[in-house]
């Protein structure tokens, strides 16, 4: 199928602010085919997270021009849950607390919503236990309220638990590496690699630092500046950024 992929074309997005809509994305072109890992790097305020949120359907962001298609389906008219149903997943930079809802209940509810039926209990429980173990989370973790009182590392690992168990077609990881120590970074990266190793999943990895790219090998690296892609390349681009920073892009943009 030629239209397989997360195809972002000339995407313009505005954010709702108190003073009215403010344009953030100014014509993003990006195509993620199944089996590919794309990294987006860029300075603060360049619109990386806006890209993540607007693709996932956060109500604060409005697509004003261009399009985002998931395997040919236009995402713009869909609610967040409908985009998830279509196969999109966003691992959040700041995962939200859901007091009183246990991780286990949350996972089962999400799986049921996505599949349209409850998972078979026995295999599901085993799968959850196994995934928690792979992310080095205690079994008791499943009984805790979602993200409530979690350390930064636990929150991010919990996002990857969801990635693996919900197993979407396309995953956007929004600064999943920020706030992680070396061990947690490795554990989280292993989870992403297990997911990607299925071979037909697309990954869009948003990060400030090339550090995580030592663990997750990207096929493409995009430099994001002022709401659009300023340069594209392979792994070597990330190394160059680490050495020289974003300065030359920023001066070019201004």
């Amino acid at each position: 199928m030629t239209n397989r992929g997360l195809v972002i074309s000339d995407l313009h997005v505005s954010v709702t602010t108190e003073t009215g809509p403010k344009p953030i994305l100014k014509g993003v072109d990006l195509t993620i085919r199944p089996g590919e890992i794309h990294a987006i790097m860029g300075p603060n305020g360049s619109g990386k997270s806006t890209l993540a949120y607007s693709l996932a359907g956060h109500p604060k962001y409005t697509i004003t021009a261009g399009s985002a298609l998931l395997d040919g389906q236009d995402l713009a008219p869909l609610r967040a849950d409908q985009r998830a149903q279509a196969g999109l997943f966003l691992a959040m930079q700041y995962p939200v607390e859901v007091p009183g809802v246990s991780v286990a209940n949350f996972l089962r509810t999400a799986k049921t919503a996505l599949d349209g039926r409850a998972p078979r209990l026995r295999t599901w429980v085993k799968q959850v236990d196994q995934t928690l173990a792979q992310l080095r989370l205690d079994p008791e973790f499943a009984a805790r309220s979602v993200n409530e009182g979690f350390s930064g590392g636990e929150k991010k690992r919990n996002e990857i638990v969801q990635l693996e168990l919900l197993n979407p077609l396309y995953a956007i990881l929004d600064e999943t590496d920020s706030g992680l120590d070396i061990d947690a970074l490795r554990i989280v990266s292993e989870g992403v690699n297990r997911y990607a190793a299925q071979g037909d999943r697309g990954v869009l990895l948003i990060t400030h630092y090339s550090r995580i790219l030592r663990y997750i090998e990207p096929d493409f690296v995009h430099v994001f500046v002022d709401g659009k892609v300023a340069q594209e390349g392979g792994r070597e681009l990330a190394d160059a950024l680490e050495e020289h920073g974003y300065d030359r892009y920023l001066s070019a943009a201004s």
């Binding site: 996932a56 609610r79 967040a80 849950d81 998830a84 997943f89 939200v96 859901v98 009183g100 999400a110």
Partner: peptide, 29 residues
């Protein structure tokens, strides 16, 4: 909390189901 509802929505929960889960959690504690 809109952020909470978005988080649940991004996991596939329709708005009504997300709200119900939030209320349930609120009382479950």
């Amino acid at each position: 909390d809109q952020e909470q509802l978005f988080y649940l929505g991004s996991r596939g929960l329709p708005p009504d189901e997300a709200r119900r889960l939030v209320v349930r959690g609120f009382f479950a504690q």
